[in-house]
C-alpha cells in the first residue's frame, strides 16, 4: 500500500491489489472492510448455503426427536438439533451483515431457499426412515462436516472463522452422540444391527457426495478454485474426502459393518483411497431440489414460514410502534 495515498483516494485496481496483499499476508478481513464484490458474493453464497443447510439439516433429525428411544437419547438429540438451529442462526447473522450493503436481509435468504436459488447440502435432501439414520447422520454427516469446517477455520473472512470455531466445538459433541448411538446398535440384537447396516447402505453415496465433485469437469461448475485463491478455503473437495475416508473407513469396518462399495480400498502406492465415484449427475439433481425428500422438506419449511407470518408481522408492528 502506498503510504502517502489515502485509501478512499485509491483507484478500484489499487484497492483490489491492497486487498489481495492482505489476503496473501494471511490477514483477516472484517465485515466493514473494503472487499471486492466478487469476494463478497463468494462469501454470501458460501455462508448463506452453510447457514441454511444447518437449518434444513434440522428437519431430517427432527423426525427422530420425539421417537428417540430413551429419555437420555431424547435429551441428547433435542440438544443436538437445537445446536444445529443455533449454528444456522449464527451463520445467517454473518451472511446478513455481508448482504446489508446490497439492501438484502434474511427474508431474501428465505425466499431464495423457497425459490430454489439458494441450495442446501445434498445430505439433507435424503430420507431418514429409521432411528439408524439418526445415528448415521450424527456420526458420519457431522463427522464429514467437522472435516470440512475445520479446514475453513483459517478462512480469510474473520466473522466466518469465529462462528466456525464455536460450531466446530459443538459438532465434536454431536459426532460423539452419533457414535454412541451407533455403538449401542452395533452391540444390540440382530434387528438393531440390520437397521444400522441398512442406514449405512442408504447414506454411503450421499456421504461421498457431501464433499462435492473432484473438479469442475464433474459438474460443469465449481467455485472451489476461486475460494482457494481468496483463502476462504485451503483444501480441495477430494483432499477432504480422502481425510474422511482415512478417519472413518477403519472405524466402520471395526464395527463389523459392510461399506456398500466392493471396490473401496487404500492404494498403498498412491497413498489414496480408491472408491466407486458417485453419479455426479444425480448429485446435481439432488442439490437442485430433485432429491428423494427435497420437495417435502422445502414444503415443510415454506408452509411453517407462511403459517407463522402473522407472528412476524405482529412483532414488526410492535417494533414500529416503539419508534
Amino acid at each position: 500500500m502506498r503510504a502517502d495515498v489515502l485509501f478512499e483516494d485509491m483507484t478500484e485496481e489499487e484497492k483490489y491489489e491492497h486487498f489481495m496483499d492482505r489476503i496473501d499476508a494471511g490477514e483477516k478481513i472484517e465485515a466493514d472492510d473494503w472487499m471486492p464484490e466478487d469476494y463478497r458474493e463468494s462469501l454470501i453464497r458460501l455462508i448463506a448455503m452453510h447457514g441454511i443447510s444447518e437449518i434444513m439439516g434440522a428437519l431430517p433429525e427432527k423426525e427422530w426427536v420425539p421417537k428417540a428411544p430413551t429419555l437420555h437419547r431424547k435429551l441428547a438429540i433435542m440438544a443436538k438439533v437445537q445446536d444445529e438451529m443455533g449454528h444456522g442462526q449464527l451463520l445467517l447473522r454473518v451472511a446478513e451483515d455481508l448482504m446489508a450493503p446490497l439492501g438484502k436481509n434474511r427474508e431474501n435468504i428465505m425466499q431464495d431457499l423457497f425459490s430454489g436459488r439458494l441450495k442446501f447440502h445434498n445430505v439433507f435432501h435424503m430420507k431418514a426412515p429409521t432411528w439408524g439414520d439418526a445415528g448415521i447422520i450424527a456420526w458420519l454427516v457431522d463427522g464429514a462436516a467437522i472435516i470440512s469446517q475445520t479446514m475453513m477455520l483459517t478462512t480469510s473472512y474473520g466473522p466466518y472463522g469465529r462462528a466456525l470455531k464455536r460450531i466446530c466445538a459443538e459438532e465434536v459433541f454431536h459426532a460423539q452422540h452419533g457414535e454412541s448411538i451407533i455403538l449401542a446398535m452395533a452391540e444390540g440384537n440382530e434387528e438393531q444391527r440390520q437397521m444400522l447396516q441398512d442406514s449405512l447402505n442408504r447414506w454411503w453415496t450421499a456421504l461421498l457426495m457431501f464433499f462435492g465433485p473432484k473438479s469442475k469437469e464433474n459438474t460443469g461448475s465449481s467455485h472451489q478454485d476461486k475460494n482457494i485463491r481468496y483463502k476462504l478455503r485451503t483444501k480441495t473437495n477430494e483432499e477432504l474426502r480422502q481425510e474422511f475416508l482415512t478417519k472413518y473407513v477403519p472405524r466402520i469396518w471395526a464395527l463389523g459393518l459392510t461399506i456398500p462399495d466392493e471396490t473401496l480400498h487404500f492404494d498403498e502406492e498412491e497413498k489414496l483411497w480408491k472408491y466407486r465415484d458417485p453419479d455426479w449427475n444425480e448429485f446435481k439433481q439432488i442439490v437442485t431440489g430433485n432429491g428423494p425428500q427435497s420437495k417435502e422438506r422445502l414444503e415443510l419449511r415454506r408452509d411453517s414460514y407462511e403459517n407463522t407470518r402473522w407472528v412476524r408481522e405482529a412483532l414488526s408492528s410492535q417494533k414500529k410502534a416503539a419508534i
Binding site: V81, M85, L300, T308, V311, R312, L315
Partner: peptide
Amino acid sequence: LGLAPHIE
C-alpha cells in the same frame, strides 16, 4: 422444532 416463527 424447525417450524417456529423465527430461527431465534
